[in-house]
Amino acid sequence: MQKIYLDYNASTPLAPEVVQTMTPLLHEMFGNPSALHWAGEPVKEVLHKAREQVANLIGSSSREVVFTSGGSEANNLALKGFYFKNRNRGNHIITSKIEHPAIVNPCKFLEKIGARVTYVGVDQFGRVSPEDIEKAITKETILITIMHSNNETGTLQPIEEIGKIAERYEIAFHTDASQSVGKVPVNVNELKVDMLTIAGHKLYAPKGIGALYIREGIQLEPLIHGAGHEFGVRAGTENTLLAAGLGKACEIANQLSENSAMKDLTIYFWRQLKEEFGEQVVLNGHSKERLPNTLNVNFVGKIGQELLSAMPLLAASTGSACHAGNVELSPVLKEMGVSEEVGMGAIRFSLGRNTTKEEIDQVMTWLKEII
């Protein structure tokens, strides 16, 4: 039997077209994109094209896209960069209790140097209430940051409604869209966000590359000081190799439909689980407002990690990919009010473009044998 990969929320394989796009930059296209000669100009063109490809996917201008080393750096740049540049206007930030550590930990750092952070809770489906966000706003609020979709449960947040509130109060709004870009339509103007985070390895691009959308007019203090790369926001010679890969991955995602086949396969998987295990299996997250590829379920009375250990050919996660192997109740599930007895049996299955019905059927066979 072959190995089966159902951990696409943790990382995706490189799309073949992405590898093909990057290959020339490993050989003849070695110049510095800032150099004004024959070796630099073609590389500069590649970088510009990649920036446009990212911008086209999210509906922005290419000048509003800054390349970073990944989602974590983009989040840090958004939060710290905005706070350092705008703390004369206020010191209050609003976020949620279920954010990724790449948001929570920068917030905790900022608290140490004078920021005041409000962590808003979620309902049983893992959704933030826009009303709770509005209630948390004070005269000192300068930034709101809420993830677009949760990496563990796949639940989508009401970003557009929160964006309208932020717009009404003239507060900057950032969303970490690392998990959702490439899986669901993402348009920065429709979402009404001022900053948006992209992580390359979540959408079939390489690891070590990401991007931050920064709406024109938003001022950030750079985290890395040096020359004027990336419109003066992030110093350092651009990693054109990885940027080209991210650009191509965004172009591919822009050409695809709304992942209807993947959604159908996820629904099929859930129906198979319910038919076989009934009340023994419980869905985590919202039943409709969710990513089309993510299925986070509790196997009641079981321990998720023990189930996965009994299926060594299956790659899946017991929670956030950053905490794989941790059998303690996920903080996200805890905030949703899931009991420890039920939540200990949580497994996150995240499907991808390469997932087949035969693979889902094989996983069902394994689960039947074990449970």
Rank of each mutant, 00 (worst) to 15 (best):
Q2L: 09
I4R: 07
Y8N: 04
S11I: 11
S11C: 14
T12K: 10
L14W: 05
V19I: 13
V19T: 13
T21P: 01
L25K: 00
L26N: 02
E28H: 08
G31P: 06
H37P: 00
P42C: 08
V46T: 07
L47G: 01
V54K: 00
I58P: 05
G59Y: 08
S60Y: 12
V65W: 10
V66N: 03
F82C: 00
F82L: 09
N88T: 12
N91S: 12
H92K: 14
H92Q: 13
K97N: 07
P106M: 09
C107T: 02
K112P: 01
G114A: 04
A115E: 01
R116C: 08
V117L: 11
Y119S: 01
V120D: 04
G121K: 08
E134S: 14
E134M: 13
E134A: 14
K135E: 10
I137K: 10
T138V: 09
K139V: 07
E140P: 09
T141K: 10
I142K: 13
I146C: 09
I146K: 09
N150S: 12
E152C: 08
Q157S: 02
Q157K: 02
I162A: 03
G163T: 06
R168G: 00
E170L: 12
A172G: 05
S178A: 15
P185W: 04
V188I: 12
V188Q: 04
V193Q: 08
D194H: 15
M195K: 01
M195C: 12
L196M: 08
A211N: 05
I218W: 01
Q219C: 09
E221V: 03
E221R: 06
A227W: 11
E230F: 13
A235R: 08
T237Q: 12
G245V: 01
G245F: 08
G247F: 06
K248Y: 02
A249P: 03
S257L: 06
N259S: 04
S260I: 11
A261P: 05
M262L: 14
K263D: 09
D264N: 14
L265F: 06
I267Q: 09
L273K: 05
E276Y: 03
F277T: 01
E279S: 15
V282Y: 03
L283C: 11
N284G: 09
V297Y: 05
K302E: 13
I303P: 00
A310R: 12
G325D: 05
V327F: 11
L329E: 06
K334P: 02
G337I: 07
E340F: 07
V342S: 10
A346D: 14
F349I: 03
S350C: 04
S350L: 07
N354S: 14
N354E: 15
N354M: 14
K357L: 13
K357Y: 06
E358R: 13
E359Q: 15
E359A: 06
D361G: 02
T365D: 14
W366L: 06
W366G: 01
I371K: 03
